[in-house]
């Protein structure tokens, strides 16, 4: 069901519509909040407070943007305020040493990725692959986790992510590149694990 339909039902007091919206977005809210605050527990609190603000209409949704964008904006404002109170140091994009070691001095693959198109085609919807991607995203350091979640899971554009997190587009691209590379590695290991097992 569309977000907008669920939102209309929620405003009318439909608890099941509210439950569906929470199920759809809560983990994204926690991941994005985590970029701004010091702990997982605080990120969870900020995400829950965001829902409570939504329930109470402290923030009114007027349909000028999508519900998703509006919800994320409330979350980010709250997370940013909380982070400021905690004197949070916003993390910078970490470099993954493993990626650099994949290439030799000439910039050639040491161990080329094995083509797994055939394997994956039948496995794309496979629960194991989905679980590998989900776990890999959850394990990403910030800001990669927030950026990959917003861009690839939630489908925001690079420009929208840049605006929401107040990062330059160029910066979002670099963060995305490093985050995606790690998630791809996880998919490769999961597929390879499956292939070896046969």
């Amino acid at each position: 069901m569309d977000d907008e339909v669920l939102v209309a039902k929620m405003v009318a007091g439909d608890a099941d519509a509210f439950r569906q919206l929470v199920a759809r977005y809560h983990s994204t809210l926690v991941r994005v909040a985590r970029y701004y605050v010091n702990s997982e527990a605080t990120a969870e609190d900020v995400a829950q407070d965001t829902w409570i603000a939504v329930i109470k209409g402290a923030e009114k949704f007027e349909g000028r943007s999508s519900f998703k964008t509006w919800l994320l904006r409330i979350l980010v404002n709250r997370a940013r305020r909380t982070g400021t109170r905690e004197h949070r140091q916003i993390p910078t994009n970490p470099v993954d040493p493993v990626q650099a070691q994949r290439f030799d001095e000439q910039g050639m693959w040491r161990e080329p990725p094995q083509p797994f198109t055939e394997v994956v085609e039948g496995r794309l919807a496979n629960a194991a692959t989905l679980a590998a991607v989900r776990a890999a995203i959850a394990a990403l350091p910030e800001p990669q986790q927030a950026v990959v979640t917003l861009r690839d899971v939630e489908g925001l554009s690079t420009e929208e992510v840049s605006e929401l997190l107040e990062l330059s587009v160029a910066n979002v691209r670099v963060i995305l590149h490093r985050g995606r590379a790690k998630v791809r590695d996880a998919v490769e290991s999961s597929v390879r694990g499956g292939a070896t097992w046969q």
Binding site: A23, R24, H26, S27, P112, P113, Q114, P115, F116, T117, V120, L124, A125, T129, L130, V133, R134, I137, V148, D152, V153, G155, R180, A181, V183, R184, V187, E188
Partner: peptide, 19 residues
């Protein structure tokens, strides 16, 4: 192959909705 794997990875991430 790497490009294709990245494409698949991004597409799979896009199917993760409810948690």
């Amino acid at each position: 192959a790497y490009l294709e794997q990245m494409r698949v990875t991004v597409a799979t991430a896009g199917t993760l909705t409810e948690d």
